[in-house]
């Protein structure tokens, strides 16, 4: 077992892990941060996307020991301390960008990474950026719409509701 220590959502977190422990397992099982989900085992679905040192990564495809010393952000740290949703989260609710909620944490974290790098993406850029996030419920329409709205762009041309 190896000791790891990292900052998760602004707080120091540490624990003992095996070499094979994935970052997502450390977050879910050791830290109890169960908002990050596992939807596949081939690094495709993106339900596990978190930020490591400001970059979106798939927490199912990174070893916990490799995150030693890193700054990790998960879905649990996105809303304000008083529970107010951030702009992206609020846009997902406003535009019905989620149904079962399982892919949602990864979608929100991917959207945050996109808008950090590209604050005014086109619809095509949003769709391509989500290539690593699979949603089975929404058909993506309202996810794309929510991200466009969160970027502050006019979504009037996108079909209603």
């Amino acid at each position: 077992m190896t000791q790891v220590k990292m900052t998760v959502n602004g707080k120091t977190a540490s624990g003992h892990v095996e070499g094979r422990t994935l970052l997502v397992q450390f977050l879910r099982e050791d830290l109890g941060l169960t908002g990050t989900h596992v939807g596949c085992d081939t690094s495709q679905c993106g339900a596990c996307v978190v930020h490591v040192n400001g970059q979106a990564v798939k927490a199912c495809s990174m070893l916990a020991v490799e995150a030693d010393g890193a700054d990790v952000a998960t879905i649990e740290g996105q809303a304000a301390a008083d529970g107010t949703l951030n702009t992206i989260q609020q846009a997902f609710q406003d535009h019905h960008g989620l149904q079962c909620g399982f892919c949602t944490p990864g979608m929100v974290m991917s959207a945050a990474a996109l808008l950090k790098d590209n604050p005014k993406p086109t619809v095509a850029e949003v769709r391509h950026y989500l290539d690593g996030n699979i949603c089975r419920c929404t058909g993506y329409h309202n996810i794309v719409k929510a991200i466009m709205a969160a970027s502050g762009q006019d979504i009037g041309a996108i079909a209603a509701e």
Binding site: E76, Q78, F92, Q93, L98, G101, T104
Partner: peptide, 12 residues
């Protein structure tokens, strides 16, 4: 229900 799903507070 979105509030809990959007904040990682769902109970799957």
């Amino acid at each position: 229900e979105d509030i809990r799903f959007l904040t990682g507070d769902g109970n799957y």
